[in-house]
């Protein structure tokens, strides 16, 4: 699965500009899908199975987009000023590298630091693409880029700039491959624009009109020195979301996921996340409301260029997703 992960995390696809990653995922899922379509928002919607007795119409969503930057102004001497797409924070930027959708690469520099104690805000950072003037700058206002950082395989732990949420894309692809039979009509959605407000999942859910919705996304952890006070840790299994700051998982879904994990002897953790939300928020509020939950992959340093997950957690997330989707759902 590591080759697949490498391929996915190294692709460039900031919110709204998911074409390259979509094509890549399309190739991976094509041999296993019963139906593939792309909706107006660019969501890649992959159906597997047909609703049979005891089955449901289920949507799972992993977002393809990643955080990034967009050029706002080119200076006379060729430096590119930029603003953010999604939750990029300035302290993760200085010295980093970016790759534009058009292939241009650059490094992030900053104006002279007044104090080592104070981080520059974005208006004092710029991208240097090696240009010497506005005229020879290969970047135009409006060009978008994502962070560039090669995939790092530390054995048990994996690091990349876009584990959020390509690792979940990998989990969905792998689950699709392994899902032999299902009583359900499962729509694996590779959604767009999650990082700018769970926008792709909203339209995908409206179109699919699912009876049950799950997002697959990363969650923060509390297992680093003097870090957040949070019960989730890397390596203790995928997390079953109880709540995050944007949604309350349906208690029936939480119960069902816990039961299935225990039955299949898959380690799991319960997640209460105090910052951030996922596509499940959008799915839950679709139409007359959708019973929704979220399967999370614990991830350190989210929204930095070095997001870290545990490979066992990833594989266990696949196993749990397959277990959840291959049998009738009991929400009693």
């Amino acid at each position: 699965m590591k080759d697949l992960i490498r391929k996915l995390v190294e692709a460039i696809g900031p919110s709204g500009y998911e074409q390259a990653i979509r094509e890549l995922i399309k190739e991976e899922v094509a041999p296993y899908a019963d139906e593939i379509r792309v909706d107006a928002m660019g969501n890649l919607i992959v159906r597997k199975g047909q609703k049979r007795e005891g089955g449901l119409r289920i949507m799972t969503a992993a977002h393809m987009d990643e955080i990034g930057v967009i050029a706002t102004h080119i200076e006379e001497d060729g430096f590119v000023r930029f603003t953010t797409i999604g939750g990029v924070r300035p302290h993760t930027c200085l010295g980093g590298r970016v790759q534009f959708v058009n292939g241009v690469r650059g490094v992030i520099g900053g104006e002279k630091l007044d104090s080592m104690e104070r981080v520059h805000s974005f208006d004092r950072l710029f991208i240097d693409v090696g240009a010497t003037s506005k005229e020879d700058c290969p970047v135009k206002v409006g060009d978008v880029a994502a962070f560039e950082r090669p995939f790092l395989d530390l054995g048990k732990r994996l690091v990349a700039k876009s584990m959020d949420d390509r690792i979940a894309c990998a989990v969905q692809i792998e689950a699709l491959r392994r899902l032999q039979t299902t009583p359900h009509e499962v729509y694996f959605v590779f959604s767009t624009q999650e990082e700018v407000g769970t926008r792709g999942a909203a339209t995908a859910a409206f179109g699919i009109d699912p009876e049950l919705g799950l997002s697959v996304d990363v969650t923060l952890t509390g297992d680093t020195p003097k870090g957040m006070k949070m019960a989730v840790a890397l390596g203790k299994g995928p997390a079953i979301k109880v709540r995050d700051s944007g949604m309350l998982a349906d208690p029936r879904v939480v119960r069902w996921m816990v039961e299935m994990a225990e039955k299949a002897h898959i380690p799991y953790q319960l997640e209460v996340l105090e910052a951030g939300s996922t596509d499940a928020r959008a799915i839950q509020l679709t139409r007359a409301g959708v019973i929704s939950g979220c399967l999370s992959i614990p991830c350190r340093y989210i929204h930095s260029p070095s997001e870290m997950v545990d490979y066992d957690d990833v594989q266990n997330a696949v196993s749990l997703l397959v277990a959840l989707l291959s049998q009738p759902v009991n929400l009693a």
Binding site: M247, L248, R281, Q284, L285, T286, R287, A288, G289
Partner: peptide, 16 residues
Amino acid sequence: AQEEETLGGGFTSPFS
């Protein structure tokens, strides 16, 4: 349901 968190009921009940 869920007014204090997401206005969830307010968004969904009128739809049905």
